[in-house]
Amino acid sequence: MQVSPKTVQGTVHNTDNQRSARPLSPRVSVYRWRGPMLASFAHRISGVVLVLFVPVYLCLLSGLTASAADFSDTINWMHSPLGRLLLWLIGSALIYHLVNGMRFILLDAGFSETREEMRGSARFSLAAGLAAVVLLAVYLW
């Protein structure tokens, strides 16, 4: 998995003619599996998961705000095994994405940019995500 920095640099600095052969970001197979890399990657995965849940949110919203029968049907669906599983997934992804998103905003604003701080905050985000996974599971089951 690990490629020496020299190889990476050699491929990055192409001449203009070879631009199409350059490795494109993010080089998942090249980066070392460190906290910050994992935090960024998890941010992307949780982001995709959340996008997929927008239609689910819309279904819930229209169900909950329609007739009284629709309301109780929707509540029953949320309590079904599939409903709980989806709520668990969306909630975990949401909390991780929120915590790590605030971390990104702080980094963009120029806070905590040293390597050690980046690793520490990445571990914090990942820990918050794990905590969300466990706590939501306890809450839902």
């Binding site: 949110y57 509540i75 709520l87 929120l98």
Partner: peptide
């Protein structure tokens, strides 16, 4: 970040009755 926690809290409040 401002609105999502509200929507999530509402959904949970509806979920637990």
């Amino acid at each position: 970040a401002l609105f999502m926690p509200m929507a999530f809290a509402l959904l949970l409040a509806v979920y637990d009755g």
